[in-house]
């Protein structure tokens, strides 16, 4: 009697454990009202045509790529992890330049301008360090570089100004907030600058717009509106980066709902290049460059690659 009981209990315990293990939880457990819901905007992205197709993807041997720029002859420079990589127009690595500090942004003409946190360092394309400019102070936080008529413009998120330097690194001026109530607002380090024949295009991401400035700092036209729809800039601080295409149109990138978009020269929405589905929900800040052939190079930091988008349909 005594021993039989032990066997019975052992058997029951075994059965109990099996039942317990086969009973798995199922179904979503987070109530719907707690979900942050952007599905309708993701869905809207899928409804529009994508005139650009990804034609190549260049994987980068970088842990944390930060910025990308293209030289007129097609050579590409990518910075991150305290190095600058010079790639050819097919993404093959030509040269690896060691940097003294973490790079934040890059521009390239005949030489490579690398923006560190608080200063600009100049390298030749052969890898030779040519100059290191003066620090812009403890508050400096460089986020974008552009070249216009031989002058270098650097957007400084930390101090909310765009610095203007000549090719030798001499400061020639600064572009400041137009006014307190209608000036720069940057809740996030999303402050980029681009240049074309008409002057400078500066992102004012806190107001979801792009503003034109003369090299002397006079504000001109503006475009962009705040909206979750495709033609506007979503979120609190978009766009994140901007570049001007050879034909005068703009390419912008956004975070939150990761988007790469093309805007016409007058600021009207032209096309979606890539959305959340192509870039992934956690794409982060996407830097962008455009080469002479009109190819859009998107630096996908999450994927650690440069993604090349080419027009497949005429707009």
């Amino acid at each position: 009697m005594k021993t039989r009981g032990i066997w019975i209990v052992l058997a029951l315990v075994a059965v109990g454990v099996v039942i317990l293990l086969s009973w798995r939880r199922g179904g979503p457990r987070v109530p719907r009202t707690y979900r942050y819901d952007v599905d309708e905007y993701l869905e809207a992205e899928k409804q529009v045509p994508l005139p650009y197709k990804e034609s190549a993807r260049w994987p980068l041997a970088l842990r944390e790529p930060r910025a990308v720029a293209v030289k007129g002859d097609g050579r590409v420079v990518v910075v991150g992890d305290r190095v600058a990589l010079v790639l050819d127009d097919a993404g093959e690595e030509l040269r690896r330049i060691e940097l003294s500090d973490e790079p934040r942004c890059v521009a390239v003409a005949d030489v490579v301008y690398v923006g560190l946190l608080d200063r600009i360092v100049v390298y030749g394309l052969d890898g030779e360090k040519q100059a290191e400019w003066e620090s812009l102070g403890e508050q400096a936080y460089l986020t974008g570089l552009a070249i216009l008529d031989g002058d270098i413009f650097a957007s400084d998120y930390g101090q909310r100004v765009v610095w203007r330097f000549d090719a030798e690194g001499k400061m020639r001026g600064r572009i400041r907030s137009a006014s307190k109530t209608d000036g720069f607002v940057f809740p996030s380090p999303t402050f980029d600058v681009a240049a074309d024949g008409d002057g400078l295009w500066v992102i004012n991401s806190g107001r979801r717009r792009v503003e034109q400035y003369s090299p002397e700092g006079k504000r001109g036209t503006m475009w962009g509106r705040s909206s979750m729809e495709l033609d506007g800039f979503s979120g609190c601080c978009n766009p994140t980066h901007i570049v001007v295409m050879p034909d005068g149109r703009f390419v912008t990138t956004e975070k939150g709902l990761p988007r790469v978009k093309v805007y016409a020269a007058d600021g009207t929405f032209a096309a979606l290049v890539a959305g959340s589905e192509q870039l992934g929900q956690d794409a982060g800040l996407l830097d962008v460059a455009v080469d002479a052939a009109g190819r859009i190079l998107v630096l996908d930091a999450a994927d650690r690659s440069v993604r090349v988008f080419e027009k497949s349909v005429s707009l």
Partner: peptide, 10 residues
Amino acid sequence: KCVHGCSMFG
């Protein structure tokens, strides 16, 4: 929910 929105966009 707010954390999601803030970290996604902000």
